[in-house]
């Protein structure tokens, strides 16, 4: 317990100090808490990183969940040829490591003219999350009872209407779980953002944070404040929704 918390406590404490205090004694409590470091970190780029992270996460997760729900539903419930082939093809994507696609994706994005734009993050995030999302949802859709759908179909509803009005509402738990897992992945993703984005103006929090340190003149305590700022949103979300988090992450058993 101490091993988990003391490092977190230590960094929060030091993020409230002046640089001189930090260098003299990193164990002492700050003389008086200095929230200026947080303001500095925020102004030195964190406001932008946050905006970028939210934009990229929200759009890629929304598209991922929507497309995967359609796909998983069709594969589980509708009449389509080559169902198994398509299912294996998509879920097979889970076996492929993003690292192996990195260099070619860079070439492709360059050719498509979307290198160094938000799309260079959003597109691969969607592509690499769909297999996982389909995998989670397919199992769920496959299992639920068909009576409601049948009733609706007899009433003359189209498949899309059935999907929107009946299937989606009762699938809330799995949609929530998929959304959470995809959000954690996207929010924390590093290597694609590192390689596909050049401009400081477009980077997300993880890359922004790592570049923070690199400038010749490093603001150490501001950096520590940055670490805390970067971690807080996920921790807060977790504290409020720990059950959904755990359900989502354990259902998939795949590490970020």
């Amino acid at each position: 317990m101490l091993i988990i918390f003391y490092p977190l406590f230590w960094i929060i404490m030091n993020s409230l100090k002046t640089s001189t205090e930090l260098f003299i004694n990193s164990f002492a409590l700050p003389e008086k808490p200095l929230f200026q470091n947080y303001i500095d970190a925020w102004n030195m780029g964190f406001s932008k990183f946050f905006f970028n992270s939210i934009l990229v996460t929200a759009s890629s997760v929304a598209v991922t969940v929507l497309l995967s729900a359609f796909c998983a539903y069709a594969l589980a419930r509708l009449d389509i040829k080559f169902k198994n082939l398509i299912l294996y093809l998509i879920i097979g994507g889970l076996l492929l490591s993003p690292h192996s696609a990195l260099i070619s994706l860079y070439k492709i994005f360059d050719a498509l003219n979307i290198y160094n734009t938000y799309f260079a993050m959003i597109v691969p995030y969607i592509a690499f999350r769909i297999p996982f999302a389909v995998f989670l949802m397919y199992g769920y859709f496959k299992d639920f009872p068909g009576d409601l759908e049948d009733a609706a179909r007899i009433d003359g509803c189209s498949t899309l209407k059935i999907f929107m009005r009946i299937v989606m509402p009762i699938s809330k738990p799995i949609i929530a779980a998929t959304t959470i897992v995809s959000s954690i992945f996207t929010w924390n993703e590093f290597i694609f953002a590192l390689v596909f984005i050049e401009s400081e103006e477009l980077v997300t929090i993880p890359v922004g944070l790592s570049r923070f340190r690199d400038a010749l003149q490093t603001n150490w305590t501001g950096m520590m404040a940055g670490i805390v700022l970067a971690s807080l949103p996920m921790i807060i979300a977790f504290l409020f929704m720990s059950k959904s988090f755990i359900r989502g992450l354990t259902a998939g058993s795949v590490k970020g």
Binding site: E198, S199, E200, E201, R211, D214, A215, L216
Partner: peptide, 8 residues
């Protein structure tokens, strides 16, 4: 203006 930090 676009910026990329020194080390990268």
């Amino acid at each position: 203006i676009q910026t990329v930090s020194n080390d990268s």
